[in-house]
């Protein structure tokens, strides 16, 4: 069990990291766009980078959060079946779900890596003030799918452990303040 606890602690940290990245992205967007508006009112230069960079960073805000959303169970599913299941049935469902989502995410990850290789070959760059390769942004897709697979695996493992031992692994508070 200490191993399991360590594993889940690690996942907590990982989830927190994704959340911090997302928060930084949102905070940057607020600051950049407010600055853009203010700068334009005062001086009129209208730096395109303040307007164009925040949306370009959205994939990094969003895709790494897929796994976190799955963990937090944030109204992203049709919660229909769980209502009809006994606690043990729900554990079975979670095990199945974790496995299915993990498999799906791995498949998407392979697709994402395939696409990433294409975009690296294409070597397109951005058009904003600072030029950087577009694949830096496309990287957020495979990273997101990998994290999703990883957290889905956790869901399956915890469900399995609970089924085998009969005791709850954690109080399902998943490290997110609501």
């Amino acid at each position: 069990m200490p191993l399991l606890r360590l594993y889940m602690k690690f996942n907590d940290v990982l989830g927190m990291l994704c959340l911090i990245v997302a928060c930084c992205g949102v905070a940057f967007a607020i600051i950049a766009l407010s600055a853009a508006a203010l700068e334009r009112l005062l001086f009129g230069f209208g730096y395109a980078i303040l307007n164009d960079l925040p949306p370009l960073l959205m994939p990094w805000v969003v895709f790494p959060m897929m796994g976190v959303l799955l963990r937090a169970d944030r109204h992203v599913t049709v919660d229909f079946l769980p209502h009809f299941l006994a606690p043990r049935g729900r554990l079975f469902l979670n095990l199945l779900l974790g496995a299915v989502i993990c498999a799906a995410a791995v498949w998407l990850l392979m697709g994402g890596l395939d696409a990433l290789a294409f975009f690296r070959r294409l070597r397109q760059t951005t058009e904003t003030g600072i030029r950087f390769p577009l694949w830096w942004i496309y990287l957020s897709f495979p990273v997101g799918f990998a994290l999703l697979a990883w957290f889905a695996l956790e869901k399956a493992i915890t469900a399995l452990v609970e089924l085998l031992t009969g005791t709850p692994v954690r109080n399902h508070k998943d490290g997110l303040q609501s």
Binding site: P59, V61, M65, L69
Partner: peptide
């Protein structure tokens, strides 16, 4: 900020 990051990711992954 945290609530925003979560709510907005939930919307944007669906868009994506």
């Amino acid at each position: 900020l945290v609530a925003t990051a979560i709510a907005c990711s939930a919307i944007f992954v669906i868009i994506g």
